[in-house]
Write a protein that binds this DNA or RNA. Sequence first.
DNA 1: CAAGTTTTTGCATTCGAATGCAATCTGCCC
DNA 2: GGGCAGATTGCATTCGAATGCAAAAACTTG
Lengths: 365, 365
Amino acid sequence: MAERHKRVRPSTPSAARRSTQPESEVTTGARTVTSYDVARLAGVSQSAVSRCFNPGSSVSRKMRERVMKAAEALRYQPNAIARGLITRRSNLVAVIISNLTNLYYPEVLSQLSQQLSERGIRLLLFTLERESGIDQMLEQIWQYRVDGAIVAARLSADQIASFRERNVPLVLYNRSYEDQPVSSVCCDQGEAARGLVNRLHAAGHARFGIVAGPPDSVVGEQRTAAALQRLRDLSHDEVHVVPGNYDYDSGVAAMQALVTHFGTAPDAVICANDVMALGCMDSARHAFGLDVPRDVSIAGFDGVGPSGWSSYRLATVRQPVRRMAEAAVSMLVEHIDDAQLPPEKRVFSGILIEGASARLSPAAS
Amino acid sequence: MAERHKRVRPSTPSAARRSTQPESEVTTGARTVTSYDVARLAGVSQSAVSRCFNPGSSVSRKMRERVMKAAEALRYQPNAIARGLITRRSNLVAVIISNLTNLYYPEVLSQLSQQLSERGIRLLLFTLERESGIDQMLEQIWQYRVDGAIVAARLSADQIASFRERNVPLVLYNRSYEDQPVSSVCCDQGEAARGLVNRLHAAGHARFGIVAGPPDSVVGEQRTAAALQRLRDLSHDEVHVVPGNYDYDSGVAAMQALVTHFGTAPDAVICANDVMALGCMDSARHAFGLDVPRDVSIAGFDGVGPSGWSSYRLATVRQPVRRMAEAAVSMLVEHIDDAQLPPEKRVFSGILIEGASARLSPAAS
DNA sequence: CAAGTTTTTGCATTCGAATGCAATCTGCCC
DNA sequence: GGGCAGATTGCATTCGAATGCAAAAACTTG
């Protein structure tokens, strides 16, 4: 009766092979070592091996030593795939990032990677060239049964809903949908933009240029909208918005467009990100011979590396990337550990870096 | 007799639960849908479902339609974990990158990600802050039974050997060990460096500064060594090497050190990467009031984005990142498909971007 | 040292999909 | 309609580790 399942491992083909081959333990080119192999060598059961590799299981010190010795001899590493199947925990987290050429995202990714790794979680990376590929990407994500996801890309309401339906914890990075019950970590773009405008206003700028981000960038939209609104509230009417797509060249082009529009240099240019601001600056200086910030003040957002270089010293609003990444990861982990937790939105304030590319205070005179 | 294994799915707890609950197919908060669920709904066997999701299996059109309809109704996605267990193919490739703050690596990563994704392979990302963590990282890699790995970080001979022992195909990116039988994709650093030196030499520079990369960077070492050797071959004796660590500030410091050493500006500075070159340039201009390239020629390596910005227009050797990534991925895939293939090293030439930061041709007069 | 605890250990089963083999079905030809 | 080849389907088993349960071993205690 108890014989019913006695088809166990010892009769496995590989086991057979192994036993015919005279004791060549570090077998060359053979299939991988399993917990059964370790168990056999240590003369214990497979469950014992499993327990030795799982903290919190009760194992005597003698047992642990024997098993560990055998495991080392065989160079055994537990198979995370098999483990994931039975525990229903893959220990994988998907990270979706819209585009890595953005100069800002590599830093985010780097922080996320560190934070996840410290918690023993693996990172499955998805990058997005065209926004179109998201649905396919999501299918992959479902297939890998990731424990959660951190997304720094635009998701539709349906897409967000699909995470909920499938019980995959989700944390949005730098995008938030007020009407959606979804966790997110953001930097308050509106606050930052308004603060910047206030300073520029107080310093006496009149003609404002705004360089927008690409139309599908939520963050960019928030930045320009807030700046625009604040300018309006301050009764500025000389404001011109030009499009941009976050890259250097679009910043260069934007400066060109602004000069054309105003017939002269604008007093201040607010760019939806740093890289465009740097493009503006270079264009102002080299194409138009303007002095920054005497002739024109230029400001950006993000606080990426080059904005601090001495050629630029850009006025910008730095995002506390490290803390944001930390928050994203710890929120995600909490939601993985307790699926019942309600969504949570965390908002950080940006840090204004004054730099030297904008007049931010009223002239001394 | 054939009853022996009749413990099949229908008696599973979840199945029981499901059948007691009146037909609420899109069950809320339930466990995930499996191929058995689809099979039951479609009134076919689990194997049939499996075959429908595996190209190349023989399935009648009627069957496929029924199954697909059921699968869609249940929002079924095959479990890649379970599939990986039985097929011994995880469809995962590990990518190890030393540090993402380097400005060059994000581009590499982005390309790798795209290339892998096009081939339906998932990317497990490992980033490295300290070089020390590699062994731990490797353990994780073994555990996840990745199908292969692409590594842009320094590996010891032992570490490389461990890939071979475990039959995990490996492709090194931009590092190669001549004495090791390991696949790699590189950009010929020596050739590039020598070419650069030749041009600078021909243009009549005498006092040379070389800014080295961090001691553990193979690429940096190759660049500086080749440049140095070539200068020696050309009988230059006014050559000074200063240390650097690839970041902007170290470039700034290097310029300072060179000026101190020569008592005046060097004629030409060759930096082991672009970012340091940009630091040098800014330092030369802003700290020493030098004109680049009239007073000093500056050159770098990599061809990262900012090197092309109009403030810099750096003379640099661009690596064909896209093609290199493509090569790395296709080599890896070949080795995954045929484990017997011998290692292969592919070397690309860099492309000299003349820019405007160095005098690369003899003066016209 | 017996009886009662507590810890260790092993057994059998499970996770979800893939696959060799055998059974069944189809279509075709005579 | 019979017979046969080829296509389709289902059955049973497998991948490798985790775990509830019961048996065994190791301690306590009186």
